[in-house]
Amino acid sequence: MDPQERIQAASKFLLQSPPGEINDVLNDVRNIISDDDTLQAGVLPALQEYNLAQFITASVPGRQHQSIVSEAARVPSGGEDEEADGEDRFWDPRSRTSFKFDHLTLEAKEPQSYEPEAESEPFRTALETSALTYISAHFHDGVVSVFPTHGALNKYVIQVVANKYNPANFWSGRWRSEYIVDLEARTITGRILVNVHYYEQGNVQLSTTHTISLELPSGIASSPEASSASKILAIISDEETKYQTSLNESYQDMGDKTFKSLRRALPMTRAKLDWDKVLGYKLGVELSGGKGGFGAST
Rank of each mutant, 00 (worst) to 15 (best):
A108T: 05
N166M: 15
H138W: 10
L127W: 07
K164R: 14
Q159N: 11
G142C: 09
A162G: 07
G142S: 11
S145Y: 04
A162C: 08
V144S: 05
H138Q: 12
T149A: 11
T97G: 03
T133E: 15
N163H: 09
T105A: 15
P111I: 02
T133N: 15
A118W: 04
D92Q: 03
T97R: 06
V143H: 00
D85C: 08
G151D: 06
I135W: 06
E119F: 15
K109Q: 14
S145T: 11
T149F: 12
V161L: 04
V160H: 11
Y165H: 13
P167I: 07
S130G: 10
L127T: 04
R96I: 01
P148R: 09
Y165F: 14
Y134A: 04
P122K: 00
N154H: 15
F123H: 09
F99L: 02
L132D: 04
G151M: 08
R89S: 06
A137V: 06
P122Y: 01
P93Y: 00
D141Y: 11
L153G: 05
V144F: 06
T97M: 02
V143D: 03
I158H: 03
R96F: 08
T125S: 15
E107W: 05
T105R: 14
L127S: 05
R94M: 07
G142D: 00
Y114H: 11
T129E: 13
P167W: 07
I135R: 07
G86N: 08
S145Q: 07
A118I: 09
R96N: 15
I158Q: 01
A168P: 04
G86Q: 10
F99W: 06
N163S: 05
E128L: 15
S130D: 04
A108S: 05
E107D: 10
E87G: 13
L106R: 13
R94A: 09
E107A: 13
T133M: 12
T133K: 14
N154M: 14
L132M: 09
